[in-house]
């Protein structure tokens, strides 16, 4: 049902909300086996770009190509190749961990749901809490569960919006290790983060957005803080 691609190309994408400009003429590419970081101050347009990549928002101008096709050309089957870990986690607090995973697995048409759900709970370290309702979980537990929910259908492109928020050091280390595994498996990862320490450990390339514009896009190579200082924390003239 899903289709495969090794590259996602954002081409001259703009997005407006009425007269407000959230993104302006952004172009960048992310490739298989690569972690692209989106950095920038609040309101820079990072989450808007992520929502456009997830097909939740349509660009006002420009296009996004997943391999050879746009979202409109690919239709709903494209969404089977996308995984999205949003800041709000997309979990039902009244359902148990297993019920949440089962519901989304069936919605995505995942084969062998019980085995996939058990494996996902094991990876999230929540096997012993599988029948507990999610509202009783800590932020870290919910975050791990939400990541496994986003990965249930083995997506080609994984989009993560501030995935390290509210996690303790051990949880951050576990999440970084999991994301590295996915990168090694050839997934395309796009991560929005403000955590520069984690960014330095994880990102291959960094794109800096400011006021809806792409102000830098470069290999990470230890230059993340340099880019951040130059474009984000530098005082306005």
């Amino acid at each position: 049902m899903s289709f495969d691609f090794t590259e996602v190309a954002v081409r001259d994408v703009s997005r407006h909300y009425g007269r407000r400009r959230a993104l302006s003429h952004v172009s960048l590419t992310c490739r298989s086996g690569e972690v692209l970081g989106l950095l920038g101050p609040n309101g820079a347009g990072k989450s808007t770009l992520l929502a456009i990549l997830a097909t939740l928002l349509a660009p006002s101008a420009g296009e996004v190509r997943y391999g050879e096709r746009t979202a409109a050309e690919a239709g709903p089957s494209l969404r089977a190749s996308l995984g999205f870990l949003a800041h709000d986690l997309h979990l039902y607090p009244e359902l148990t961990a297993a019920e949440n995973l089962r519901f989304f697995a069936r919605l995505y048409g995942v084969p062998d749901v019980p085995a996939k759900v058990s494996a996902a709970l094991d990876r999230a370290g929540l096997a012993s809490r599988r029948d507990d309702i999610v509202s009783g979980f800590s932020r870290g537990m919910r975050q791990r569960l939400a990541l496994e929910r986003a990965l249930l259908h083995d997506p080609r492109l994984l989009l993560l919006d501030e995935p390290f928020t509210g996690l303790d050091d051990a949880s951050v280390a576990a999440l970084v290790a999991r994301l590295r595994e996915l990168r090694a498996a050839g997934r395309i990862l796009v991560v929005v983060t403000h955590d520069l320490d984690v960014a330095e450990r994880l990102l291959d390339r960094v794109a800096v957005l400011k006021d809806g514009r792409l102000v830098a896009c470069d290999e990470a190579q230890g230059r993340i803080r340099e880019h951040y200082r130059a474009h984000v924390t530098e005082p306005r003239a």
Binding site: P76, S77, L78, R79, H90
Partner: peptide
């Protein structure tokens, strides 16, 4: 709306 789960439903590769 509370956990943006409607967005999660919209992301599923199914007929909306």
């Amino acid at each position: 709306r509370h956990s943006e789960t409607l967005r999660a439903l919209m992301l599923a590769p199914t007929s909306r």
